[in-house]
Design a protein around this nucleic acid. Structure first.
Lengths: 202, 202
DNA sequence: CCTACCGATCGGTAGG
DNA sequence: CCTACCGATCGGTAGG
């Protein structure tokens, strides 16, 4: 792996764990095993490094998520899609944490990113749900776009904090680990609050 | 208002907006209108100030939330309770943002706080839902404790990021503002994924 | 609650 | 990619 990629990897991890202001350039350089000025040769400033970390992550999302969301049209594929969406974040909680931190630290920047990368998908999903609603497949009370936003935000923020919630949602021999219980309940909640056909559950 | 309270107020706001590491003691002192060493006379260190900010907020919670959660037993009161819970966070989004930041920045500390202040309520709520489930009032698929955690985490993190989500969930003349749509959908999702009696909706 | 001051660390630059 | 170094700011202390 070349140095640039190594810097991005360690910066992503440290920014997610400690935040941008809580992480020094020195710390990242130490993790990579180079001197601070060497790092600043590859990325001209700490801020430029942060922007590259974010945009690299969004690029990864854009390569994976679209194919996931497109499958969400049909009910029988809903479980699979939600599960994949959760898995995408759970397999690397740093993704969710970084997004959440950027939302808290630079709301205006995040607004621009959401508008460009997420809004089109919400709109598409909203339209599909609107049609399903007209056909009576979706509960009449549903606000399709608000629902879509709700579910995505549940998946992201849920994943970001799940390890900390372990204390209040213990492992259960019958129900599985905290993570399993949390993901299963997330999918169940999302599912049973959407479709009309309640018998299709489980 | 005495100086101590002023310091806490401004520190709460600034920590919520910019984070602990993103806020200097100087900045807080400026907001209050005193010199930095004067602030450090009231709170011996920045860390001590942070601890006071957090514990003051938890004290506020503990004065308000218990009475809310106790009302959650009966279905007919569910809407009112969820609405009050959402309103509690929405009326001052800094509360939610601060909690979320503390969870990201100091997960071990937050774990201790959750264990002490939140876990008992989750357990109680879980037991009540378990009984309601035995009576057939609650859907068979529900994991009561996981559900309770899910709903609270939805309310907290949803509130923390709602202003930023405005871009992807626009105001709608028919459905109201972003906040209204978000809160309404949150309540609908929480409600319709819990009870058996679907006709009681709306 | 203030002035004056401290060592440590911050992001970043010069020059090779 | 390194050594050497910069001014600015950090949290915090002494002393009144």
């Amino acid at each position: 792996m070349d140095v640039r990629a190594q810097i991005l990897t360690h910066a992503t991890r440290l920014f997610a764990e400690q935040g941008y202001d809580g992480t020094s350039v020195q710390e990242i350089a130490d993790a990579v095993g180079i001197r601070k000025p060497s790092l600043l040769y590859h990325f001209n400033s700490k801020d430029e490094l942060r922007e590259n970390v974010i945009s690299e992550m969004l690029a990864h999302w854009n390569a994976v998520l679209p194919s996931l969301l497109l499958r969400a049209t049909r009910e029988e594929r809903f479980d699979a899609t939600m599960e994949a969406l959760s898995k995408f974040f759970i397999e690397d909680p740093d993704r969710a944490r970084l997004m959440l931190r950027e939302t808290l630290d630079r709301p205006e920047h995040m607004r621009a990113l959401l508008k460009e990368f997420v809004r089109p998908w919400i709109k598409l999903l909203g339209e599909q749900l609107e049609r399903a609603k007209a056909q009576g497949m979706v509960q009449p009370g549903v606000d399709p776009e608000a629902y879509a936003v709700q579910v995505i935000s549940m998946a992201v923020s849920g994943t970001a904090v799940i390890d900390t919630l372990q204390t209040i949602l213990p492992n259960d021999p019958l129900r599985g680990t905290t993570r399993e219980r949390h993901v299963r309940e997330l999918i169940r909640v999302a599912r049973s609050s959407l479709y009309t056909d309640k018998d299709a559950e489980r």
